[in-house]
Design a protein around this nucleic acid. Structure first.
Lengths: 327, 327
DNA sequence: TTGTAGGCGTTATCAC
DNA sequence: GTGATAACGCCTACAA
């Protein structure tokens, strides 16, 4: 059982006062080169590590970040969170922060958890995944001066807070371009009902690209809640029109899977999110740069925590198309 | 900006000493009913919450648990972790603990992280997901008296530490029984190469059930690394034998998906893990009770932390068969 | 049953 | 450039 190594142990070993050790740790420039080296050697040989609880008592900062873990989202699209969490944890550790998890049933419950986390553990910041229109959580946090970053932009007022997001429109544009380049002219879009920021953005990318190539998108898009059955339904609907599409761009892998089943291999299909399902069945899909997005979230958050009072920052990342066998 | 509410604030408000407040919190039985109520009212109206950092300084316990987040496991089977993490976080919160995440490249790296987490944040315990034969991590932790529970049993020496696991053999037994009851007699098994605890266990369940029904399993099983292509390969191999199977029990959804593709709808197929992929394509699959497993992990860990020195405990949970369209 | 005193490990302040 | 002192909020003796 190795005894506890505190700043006092190090100080004794290096023949300096505790304060000097603290200075080496927090304000190295104040300490003479020679002393600094001696202290650092002592730290290394003793295996000293800062006690975060004690430091937190003094500084009021915990070096803890929190992120919510969802119960299991909409099955097929859920596993995006895994990769994002890993990226967050990794990037946070590199910056000397740790990531704490919490659960919540809804926004109100989440705010209760904020209160608890803030009061009990003095959390330094939050990463929120996804924001609705007029998200109460972001207002609550901003009101109290709590730092946070969202993964997913606030559609109503983009500069209200810092966020990282993926350029959805660019993703569907890439998908549409790919289909056009492989000879398709009538390309359908299967997305979600109008009104969701993400969904509308994905539809836009398809629509704009069609027009850019002088192709008429009119009548070629359908919207339905996310799901395989819904995707199949939309695809069947489009396939029975007078001039049916020969390919589909879909707003999710779920919808794409449905389209694939409905088309029975006769149509090219591209999904969105590059979920494990896509990889499993060879579905060409738009992939979000999750580790990168996570790292940028941490960057932004830590910038704010370090008190760079630059207002808010926004980061928009480009997705990439993973070409497999369905398009 | 609400000022900081400490034990002193509460004490003043309730007209008692700080110590009495502390007693109400930690040893309520020492405090007279009337005083206790008054203090609790003060706590409620002031919204007081224990400062964990300060408490930790005194008690040496952080009420923090840690679990490793994987980079993204084997695609299709990865998303099991999501649900487990959610269960852990939920159960931990109910017991007054929080869950912290960490990443690691390998076992050695993970042990380095243990050291850091233990020294910097005084973590109370760890949940390890999966153990190899002769897992160095568990020895390291046990040696230092650090509490931990694994999800997945240590195959070489079951009682060496506490664990929670799912009865794999029971899962494949259920799958096999289902196929037999729906009329199949020649049932193949597609699993992993012999040598992995989990894989062998899943093969056992199938084999024992076949024998229990007087069916001969000889020559009906194949083993390959996990993957869709591998599953397809094994299925094709079995289907070209003189007496081919009419159904397959598979050790994973990946293998099952491959088998499904190879059989082209002519064979019944059951997978394992009930991943989103299974749900997406209607694959019948064995489902692990993840939230339950997570809760039991927390129970065990907290029992140990509370110093019930009962040695180690083991929990084996039964999986369930989710019947869909492929069997 | 309640109050008082001290210290957990760190850092900020202020002397030296 | 370095060192002493106090304080962060809490809990555990011990005393009243």
């Amino acid at each position: 059982m190795p005894e506890k190594v505190t700043i006092a142990t190090v100080a004794a070993h290096a023949q300096v006062s505790r304060q000097t050790v603290s200075n080496v740790l927090n304000s190295p420039h104040l300490v003479r080169e020679e002393t600094r080296v001696r202290v650092q050697e002592a730290i290394a040989t003793l295996g000293y590590r800062i006690n975060q609880a004690a430091r937190q008592m003094r500084t009021g900062r915990s070096r803890l970040l929190a992120v919510r873990i969802e119960p299991t989202r909409d099955g097929i699209n859920g596993s995006v969170l895994d990769r994002f969490l890993h990226g967050l944890t990794f990037a946070a550790a590199a910056a000397g922060y740790r990531v704490m998890l919490y659960t919540a049933d809804d926004d109100g419950d989440e705010i209760k958890t904020f209160e608890d986390l803030l009061a009990s553990h003095e959390l330094d910041g939050f990463v929120l995944t996804g924001t609705d229109h007029g998200d109460v959580r972001t207002f609550w946090l901003a009101e109290r001066g709590v730092q946070f970053v969202t993964f997913g932009r606030p559609w109503d007022e983009p500069e209200r807070h810092s966020w990282v997001d993926v350029d959805n429109a660019d993703g569907t544009a890439q998908a549409t371009r790919r289909l056009i380049e492989t000879g398709h002219r009538r390309i359908g879009f299967i997305g979600w009902p109008a009104g969701s920021g993400v969904g509308d953005d994905r539809r836009d990318g398809w629509q704009r690209t069609m027009k850019a190539y002088d192709l008429d998108p009119a009548g070629l898009d359908r919207g339905a809640p996310d799901g395989i059955a819904q995707g199949a339904e939309c695809a069947r609907d489009l396939l029975t029109t007078p001039e049916p599409p020969t390919a589909f761009v879909c707003a999710s892998d779920s919808l794409a899977l449905g389209a694939l089943q409905a088309a029975g291999g006769r149509s090219a299909v591209i999904g969105f999110d590059d979920t494990p399902v896509a990889e499993a069945i060879g579905l060409t899909s738009v992939s979000q740069p999750l580790p990168d997005a996570a790292a940028r979230c941490i960057d932004l958050l830590i910038d704010h925590l370090d008190g760079n009072p630059v207002g808010t920052s926004q980061v928009l990342l480009k997705p990439s198309l993973v070409v497999r066998t369905t398009a």
